[in-house]
Amino acid sequence: MNRKTFAYLLYSSAIVSFVILFIGFILAVWDLTHPSKSSALAAKKQIPTPQAQEGLFVGLGDSLTRGVGDSKGLGYFGLVREQLAKKNPGRISAVNLAINGQTSTDLVKQIQQEKVRILIAKARWITITIGGNDLFRGSGGLEKLDLKAAKKSREIYEKNLTTLFTEIRKLNSKATVFLFGLYNPFGDLADEKISSQLVAEWNETMQKVSARFNQIVVIPTFDLFQLEPGKYLYSDHFHPNDAGYQRMATRLLQVLEDTEEGEESHDQ
C-alpha cells in the first residue's frame, strides 16, 4: 500500500469512527435519560420458557438440606448433586428449596407456593430434612426438655408430615421421596438418655407416616452421629460438619443408585 492511500485510509477511518462514536454517545445519553419500560417488555418475548429437565433433584426442608455447617456450603444436597451430575453429565438439574430454620408447619405453607408446586411436579427425586426444628424448639430448648410439650409438637409434626406427603403425591406420583431421619446432637450431654428417647420417638413417627405412602424412603441418621457426635458435628453442636454431610450423602447415594438403575432399565 503506498503512503498516500494509507494516509487517506487513516483519515477517513478517523472520520467514520468519529461519526459512529458520536452516534453511540447520543444513543447512550438518549437511552439513559429517556428510560422506557417498553424495551424491557419487548425483551421478554425473546426469552423462551425453560425446557423440561431429564432428572430434576429437589431439596426441601431446613438448614440440613441447605448445608449449614459445611465449610464448602454444599451440604449433603450439594455433594449428592455433584455425584449425580458426574454420572449423568448435562442431564441432571437440582433445585434446593430448603430454608434455614424451617419447621414442618413452615414447610407445609411453603409447598402451597406456585413455583414450588411446579418444581415438585417435575422432580424425579425429592429429598427432605424436616423435624429438627420442631423437636428441639417445641420441647423447651436444650437445657430442660419438656416431655409434654414434646409430645404435643410431635402430634403436630405427624399431621404436617401427612399433609406434606399427600400434597407431594398429589402433584407427583412417580418421584422417589427421601426423608432423612433425625439424629441426636446432644448425645454427649447430660440428658443423653431422655433426648435420645425423644429422637427415637420422632423417628418412629416418620417411619409410621412414610409407610402409608408409596416410594417414600426414610434414611436413618441416628447411628451416624451416635457414638462420636463431636467428630461429625459442626462447632455449633447442632448441624453436621463436612464429614457429617459426607456420611449423609453416602447414605442417600446408596439408596439413590437403586432408583436410578431402576429407571434406566425401565427406559430400555
Binding site: 447512550a28 437511552d31 419500560k37 424491557a40
Partner: peptide
C-alpha cells in the same frame, strides 16, 4: 427502567461515552 439491550448496542453506547 432496567432493560436488556444486545451487546453490540451496549458496546456502541459504552464507546460513545468513552469518546
Amino acid at each position: 427502567y432496567v432493560h436488556i439491550v444486545p451487546q453490540w448496542k451496549y458496546l456502541l453506547m459504552a464507546f460513545g461515552l468513552a469518546w
